[in-house]
């Protein structure tokens, strides 16, 4: 057995395996990107909603957040994918189910981050702006939002990388993404490349790392730059 075989990397050179693995990563990244986009927009709105003093708004946001926090993502995936298709007779494909579940999760978590960022701005900062004669819109535009975004970005980048990593779960409902492709390659080559299990999972680890590392570096950079 040569070195590649020993490391279980020989399977990558067979046929289109390497391309298939990259294609799988692309599915994972696509699901993440779309869900992250929904989560940021929805999370901003939900976060502002969460700061409302209205008791009904408080109950609704509390409930939503609890569901997001308590239910494992995998359970949510099964509920939407199998429940949605079987019980409700809707035709939701696996990728759409994944996007729905990740957005549902992301909006809740992102909303809580937005709420935290808004509430972390000291009351006196609002008053200083008001005392200078700024009206509400001017105050949000020049003081509240810039401060909130600075606090928000490092934490939300952390959330985004968590979302990308969690996409590995969606192979469970049959979305063909990087984990699933990896498994298929390992299965197909069990006889000829017994070490493929190490090589393929090693490569997948690397692929997730490549997808998440620049994002978390960016987060660290912004955190340093804006450290108050």
């Amino acid at each position: 057995m040569d070195l590649l075989g020993l490391l279980g990397l020989d399977v990558l050179l067979k046929g289109t395996n390497a391309l298939r693995l990259l294609g799988g990563l692309w599915v994972a990244v696509r699901v993440s990107l779309i869900s992250v986009a929904f989560s940021i927009v929805g999370g901003l709105l939900f976060g502002i909603f969460m700061t409302w003093k209205n008791p009904l708004a408080k109950v609704i946001s509390r409930l939503y957040l609890e569901v997001v926090r308590i239910m494992p993502q995998l359970v949510l995936l099964f509920i939407v994918f199998f429940g949605g298709t079987r019980a409700l007779g809707l035709n939701i494909d696996a990728e759409l189910s994944a996007i729905i579940v990740f957005s549902f999760w992301g909006i809740g978590e992102m909303g809580d981050l937005v709420r935290g960022a808004l509430e972390s701005i000291p009351k006196h900062q609002y008053e200083a702006a008001e005392a200078l004669g700024l009206n509400r819109a001017q105050m949000y535009r020049h003081v509240v939002i810039p401060l909130a975004v600075r606090r928000l970005i490092p934490m939300s980048i952390n959330l985004v990388t968590r979302m990308i990593k969690t996409t590995s779960l969606i192979m469970m409902i049959g979305v063909v993404e990087v984990m699933k492709v990896g498994q298929q390659i390992i299965e197909a080559n069990r006889m000829t490349s017994p070490n493929a299990v190490f090589g393929i999972y090693g490569i997948i680890l690397l692929l997730y790392f490549v997808a998440c590392w620049p994002i978390s570096k960016l987060g660290e950079h912004l955190e340093r730059k804006w450290a108050a």
């Binding site: 900062q125 200083a128 008001e130 005392a131 200078l132 004669g133 020049h142 003081v143 108050a228």
Partner: peptide
């Protein structure tokens, strides 16, 4: 309020703005 200048015990400068921007914000915006 623009006729009343208020200064607080804890300064309350805007941390994301430079010293100059802190001073120019209200005259330019308000």
């Amino acid at each position: 309020r623009a006729k009343l200048g208020m200064v607080f015990q804890s300064y309350e400068l805007f941390p994301h703005k430079t010293v100059l921007e802190n001073v120019t914000l209200a005259p330019t915006v308000v």
